[in-house]
Design a protein around this nucleic acid. Structure first.
Lengths: 224, 224
DNA sequence: AAAGATCTATGCGTATTCTTGTCGTTGAAG
DNA sequence: CTTCAACGACAAGAATACGCATAGATCTTT
């Protein structure tokens, strides 16, 4: 799950980023309207959080623009309490939800979850591969009746794998989704984390749910 | 399928290279405009990925130049989002598609596939020769209902053969498309890989789908 | 300061890729 | 028809690249 936050106040921005990262989302923050538009149009985010008062390009313009260019990603807008009409205009322009500043961070998280769930079209919200079950809402992972504790990164990686079960995911695809905008190819973090995951998930089992496709990447698969 | 990537930022370049290689393409990367032009003109690439901002020669000049010299290879250009007119000029100069930075690597891969497919004139995307089926998207190969596991090189070779089924492919043609620049001409790797392929594909069968044309090369053919 | 999480670095085993050499086939010249 | 050279098939082994595990460095959080 990858989220774009377009917000120019550094404090608010990093506050939101933190909260979202703790929920295991990959977060890109951007303080500049023009750049935000670029990113929103070129990267397939799962959610965009957009502050309407930005320097440079007005937030509303940005929103209209990316909608016109066909971006379907759910957008949550942030406004000041007083700007009622901005909010209305925002919804008209294609926003899916709004939040008035100041807000409780939990509310942002809850609404983000709701939007993501709605967009994913998955009514249950639970991901399953064989007897491995991941619940994105509670962030709980179980195998059989065994509860599995994961760190944030491990969780994010597993979720990405499970959401794309059956597809071969290449390393660059994984870095893009689970790690943030980072073009650093010369590292083996992914391999290390796959290893961590296998240790926790397949503990004591013959066959791993995460299969290696040599020269290409990894796939999550229940069958042989 | 052999691809030339002209890109001067080392990180981006190696990121792209890796993604493409994991999809079994043969990739040559080049950071220098002049050299890129030379390569583009002397090697029969299947696709060229060209960053428009290069040191030395301007990317657009390069593009115009190779088009003028008769190179028909599809070209995908990379630009920054803001440079709208560059993009337009690029398409005018003979580019087939463009991608704005930053981009999602999947998008690059998807578009690359599309361009390669379009150029090959194959509408379906699935390659078939007799009862042998190759799906470039999932990278899966089956003969009848038998799944066949191939290594990266074997796969690349088979794909090239199947894309040109019916045509006799000479050894130089094969090296150009399946292997990349650091290839030693005086070797029989190709023969060896043909042999590997036959072992896996025609296992237990009388007639091989890959026929030898003595003195010339190999053809892929279903009929006798 | 301690604990935990994330990332880097390194060595090892093995799948893949390539090289080398032998042998069988083919086709043309004698 | 025989001989011979060129060519291709294939086996076996060497070199290489890749993924995995492990340990330790670094950065974060409490």
């Amino acid at each position: 799950m990858r989220i774009l936050v377009v917000e120019d106040e550094p404090k608010v921005a990093s506050f939101i980023r933190r909260a979202l990262e703790e929920e295991s989302y990959a977060v890109d923050v951007c303080a500049d309207g023009q750049q935000g538009q670029d990113w929103a149009q070129s990267i397939d985010y799962d959610l965009i959080v957009l502050d309407l008062m930005l320097p440079g390009i007005p937030g509303l313009e940005l929103l209209k623009h990316i909608r016109k260019s066909g971006v379907k990603t759910p957008v949550m807008i942030l406004t000041a309490r007083s700007e009622v009409d901005q909010r209305v205009k925002g919804l008209d322009a294609g926003a899916d939800d709004y939040l008035t500043k100041p807000f409780a961070i939990e509310e942002l998280l809850a609404r983000a979850r709701a939007l993501l769930r709605r967009a994913g079209g998955v009514p249950t919200g639970v991901l399953e591969v064989g007897d491995l079950v991941l619940n994105p809402v509670t962030r709980e992972v179980t195998r059989g009746d065994q509860r599995i504790e994961l760190t944030t990164k491990e969780y994010a990686l597993l979720e990405y794998l499970m959401r794309n079960a059956g597809r071969v995911l290449t390393r660059p695809m994984i870095t893009e989704h689970v790690w943030d905008l980072d073009f650093d190819t010369f590292t083996n973090v992914i391999d290390v984390y796959i290893s961590y995951l296998r240790n926790k998930i397949d503990k004591g089992r013959e066959q791993s749910l995460i299969q290696t496709v040599r020269g290409s990447g990894y796939v999550m698969r229940a069958d042989v």
